[in-house]
């Protein structure tokens, strides 16, 4: 009989993240499809009361928590200890958690303490013939596998964006607080705060409805034989400001900056999407002046609706990968788009 533990980090405001609520929904469905399975939610943070209320009606049989100042910020030593304590208390055979930075940092190490196996980049957890199977990504979202393991405990770190977040009513529930044994050695690391990269304005917005991908074509010479970097920068930033979209960039454009070439100054490695970059999730994506093949196009694997503006109708970035490809000069199109957006 499986015992499921869902680990959730509680943020500074006492809330759960969207990825956390997606994991709640995943755990709920899993528990429902495993006859006889029990499931518990394990919360980690400064204070877990509000978070417990937020998911009180999710169907979990038990709400456990490890709380206190030592657990307020995501940190390996404290998070791994909390995860270990919660797993032992719940005697979990399946330990689920969202693959956010907190649990990606701490949970694999905790799994080792528990003698558990770990799988990451999980897109779905399913039950077939009474056994748990996962669908996960390998090779950075380029290969997917359906797999299972016999050994327990089994830690499953689930990628965000694969399931609707749990959206039930808040309520009251009993929260069992585990005694927090804070080790002195944890204080070797102190979380000081959060720092945004040195750019003038926000251009990465994970929750935005639209991802705007800028490719190296923006820096190339235009029909007049000149490159128009200033105008490119202004068009892109203007669009990002007006739509509050998130900005991504192709590898080649980010790397051009390391050549001492004049490039778009606001782009950093954090903007890079695709192989060796990120694979962000947004409902819509608009790619401009991008050219590339499969490894780069991984960058918009998780974009649901995709459109592209490119001068080459056979462009590998768009053909077979975008829903709509506009064969046109992105400068002209984006000028007009920005004008229409006011």
């Amino acid at each position: 009989m499986e015992k499921i533990l869902l680990l959730l980090g509680v943020d500074a405001e006492g809330k759960l993240s969207k990825a956390g609520l997606e994991a709640v929904e995943q755990a709920r469905r899993l528990a429902c499809s495993l006859p006889g399975a029990s499931w518990a939610v394990g919360l980690v943070g400064r204070d877990a009361q509000d978070a417990a209320r937020q998911v009180a009606n999710c169907g979990a049989g038990k709400f456990l928590a490890v709380t206190g100042d030592a657990f307020a910020s995501p940190r390996y030593a404290s998070d791994a200890a909390a995860a270990e304590a919660l797993a032992r208390r719940s005697e979990a055979t399946l330990i689920l958690a969202p693959a956010d930075s907190r649990w990606m940092r701490a949970l694999p190490g905790a799994a080792h303490r528990l003698g558990a196996a770990v799988d990451t980049h999980i897109a779905a957890v399913e039950v077939a013939d009474g056994a748990v199977q996962v669908r996960r990504w390998y090779y950075r979202q380029r290969i997917e596998a359906q797999q299972t393991r016999r050994s327990r405990p089994w830690v499953l770190l689930m990628d965000a964006g694969n399931i609707e977040p749990w959206a039930g009513e808040a309520g009251e529930t009993a929260l069992e607080a585990l005694p927090a044994e804070v080790a002195e050695s944890w204080d070797r690391t102190k979380v000081v705060g959060v720092e945004a990269p040195e750019t003038d304005e926000q251009t990465i917005r994970p929750d935005a409805g639209l991802l705007f991908v800028a490719g190296a074509g923006w820096t190339k010479k235009q029909p007049d034989g000149l490159s128009h970097l200033e105008e490119a920068a202004e068009l892109i930033l203007d669009f990002v400001r007006k739509t509050k979209c998130s900005l991504g960039s192709s590898k080649s454009l980010v790397e051009l900056s390391s050549e001492g070439q004049a490039v778009l100054p606001f782009l950093t490695h954090l903007h890079q999407v695709g192989q060796t970059g990120s694979t962000p999730r947004h409902p819509k994506g608009l790619a401009t002046c991008c050219h590339g093949e499969e490894p780069h196009v991984v960058g918009w694997r998780f974009i649901k609706e995709r459109r592209a503006v490119n001068l080459d109708p056979n462009c590998g970035w768009a053909q077979g990968k975008a829903d709509v490809l506009y064969v046109a000069d992105a400068f002209a199109v984006m000028r007009e788009v920005n004008r229409l957006l006011g």
């Binding site: 050219h291 093949e293 499969e294 056979n314 462009c315 590998g316």
Partner: peptide
């Protein structure tokens, strides 16, 4: 055909 008959640019990449 996107697999073998591809644009020159795609031949560079693929």
């Amino acid at each position: 055909d996107g697999k073998l008959l591809v644009s020159h640019q795609d031949a560079l990449l693929m």
